[in-house]
Design a protein around this nucleic acid. Structure first.
Ligand SMILES: [Mn+2]
Ligand SMILES: [Mn+2]
Ligand SMILES: [Mn+2]
Ligand SMILES: [Mn+2]
Lengths: 221, 221
DNA sequence: TAAAAAATTTAGATTTGTCTAAATTCATTT
DNA sequence: AAATGAATTTAGACAAATCTAAATTTTTTA
């Protein structure tokens, strides 16, 4: 039923999906930046995806996945996140080490494999970064997360996602003992640089820059 | 240290390794048949592998992996067999269903992943087909197997490997309740067609054709 | 609204992996 | 030893995925 897609096509499909979640439409330069490729290469790929009838695309006007395309994207995301869960829960990878490997594993092509893996892992609903895992029909739990920058002083929250894979950020978080599941309370906000002071589990108090706070998503508790 | 190899290169390297185990040297047509590709395509690839200094190759004279090439082949075989073990032992695939998926998984590129997988599986020494799994240094247990055609009447043995992945064979074996670990005794041999009569676990008695017997390797018990 | 700037596409090239058909080399047979 | 046939390589082509540089379109600015 679904045609087969190459690894390059799948990487484009997934990246388009994530970008169109933000604003509905995606533009060539943004996708090229996300994939660390060139705008001209993106244009080439857009034509292929349009020819395969999974992308709505008019030259110069932006583009977005149609419902068939979204279904395919969700299948790739399902595989990516299930493998991440496997790597962390079964193989004891750190949650900040799994992305690269999952980026490869998500392209393994076997429905049976992924459904058996899902069962083996006992149908997890969230990956190690707090992102919801689509089920085999593409449905996933809504993620009730708020950006740390949006909390009020004295609010308590638990970190459930880190929105950036940047190398330096993960290093900083590890050093500060901050990770998925960390409980914290907002102590103060400084308008000058939009930094925020937090207390972890009623113990350490520390400052987070705006850049760091922006990368942290929490659920309020 | 080791350059990176593409999926196509890795598939060629692995196939060359298996063929050169038989007779030391490999020929273009044989490799093309094994990979279901064309002799001209094989020649193209041989030049690449020679340029990467892992293959001894003189035009028209056959070819074989040098020690560097064998090391790379064993790394791929290690991954293939560990994934097969994982699929059967953890995901409950049938031992006759794993080959295709392992053919993809063997190309995932992460030393950390494969060493952690090995530990998770508790360092298995044989894959679901009875083939030995190389350790991270490329060493593997010698396989003490004998072909079923070589046993004498009244000898008892346990099946530890099936040497062919042919579709029809696996179907036949499943139907006959024969698999890895099956214990049997040789009852009679017929010179006419080289068929052999066996009894499984002192229960069923059945005839196996020469073609089937040739594909079965056993250890004597 | 016309120029300038930004975004995007097109043109043309390169690498990888594959193929078919033709040429070459090697081995076997008269 | 020449002819035949098998095995192998070469020549030339093509699709996929990328790139750079140039052209085009759209948007912004003056
Ligand atoms: Mn990927
Ligand atoms: Mn994730
Ligand atoms: Mn393979
Ligand atoms: Mn095997």
């Amino acid at each position: 039923m679904q045609p087969n897609f190459t690894v390059a096509e799948e990487n484009h499909i997934k990246a388009i999906y994530h970008l169109q979640q933000l604003s509905g439409k995606v533009f060539t330069n943004d996708l090229a930046a996300a994939l660390e490729t060139r705008p001209a290469s993106v244009t080439d790929m857009l034509k292929k995806l349009k020819a395969k009838k999974i992308l709505h695309y008019e030259p110069y006007q932006g583009f977005y996945l149609n419902s068939e395309g979204k279904k395919i994207a969700l299948g790739i995301i399902r595989k990516h996140r299930l493998w991440e869960y496997f790597l962390v829960e079964k193989l004891h990878f750190g949650w900040d080490e799994v992305h690269e490997v999952a980026e490869q594993l998500e392209h393994i092509n076997s429905k049976k494999l992924i459904d058996k893996l899902d069962a083996f892992l006992d149908y997890p609903r969230f990956d190690p970064h707090g992102d919801p895992i689509p089920d085999s029909n593409g449905k996933m739990a809504a993620q009730q997360q708020v950006n740390l920058t949006q909390l009020d002083v004295n609010q308590q929250a638990e970190i459930c996602a880190v929105a950036s894979q940047a190398r330096g950020l993960l290093e900083l978080l590890k050093h500060s003992n901050i990770g998925i599941g960390t409980k914290l309370e907002i102590k103060r906000r400084f308008g000058f640089d939009q930094s925020v002071e937090i207390t972890i589990k009623n113990q350490q108090t520390m400052m987070l820059s705006h850049q760091v706070a922006q990368a942290l998503f929490v659920k309020i508790i």
